[in-house]
Design a protein around this nucleic acid. Structure first.
Length: 109
DNA sequence: GAGGTGACTGCGA
DNA sequence: CTCGCAGCCACCT
């Protein structure tokens, strides 16, 4: 915890997301205790490309289920393709049945 | 050491 | 229903 940087904490939680499920920045932020700082989670994801093993950031979307960070995957369609590959239906950059496949760390963990 | 940035969220009009 | 504003905290330069 203290030894691990905030980024690493986020990475670990994101990597714990089950296949076919998605989570939100606010949920992860709340789990880490920084509920009011959901931005930090998104910021951590921004640096996720520097983390290894690579983090399934595609499973992390905003509270609306919108692929807010799709543009950071290199290609705007990359994130959607990855999600569909996991069995998640994505339309108009939004996750279908988002609340149904939503995975809350503070709830599941 | 200080300042700026950002893959968000919630509330108000 | 849709649009806009302010708060938040760790990392980078």
């Amino acid at each position: 915890m203290d030894k691990l940087s905030f980024y690493e904490q986020v990475y670990q939680v994101v990597r714990l997301i089950p296949n076919g499920r998605v989570s939100s920045y606010g949920a992860i932020a709340a789990y880490l205790g920084t509920r009011g700082s959901s931005r930090m989670v998104g910021y951590a994801m921004n640096a996720s490309h520097t983390a290894y093993p690579k983090v399934p950031a595609q499973r992390v979307v905003n509270r609306n289920g919108l692929l807010s960070g799709k543009f950071h995957f290199g290609s705007a369609d990359m994130m959607q393709q990855l999600l569909e590959n996991e069995g998640i239906k994505v339309v108009d950059d939004k996750v279908l049945d988002f609340k149904n496949i939503f995975w809350d760390p503070s709830l599941e963990l």
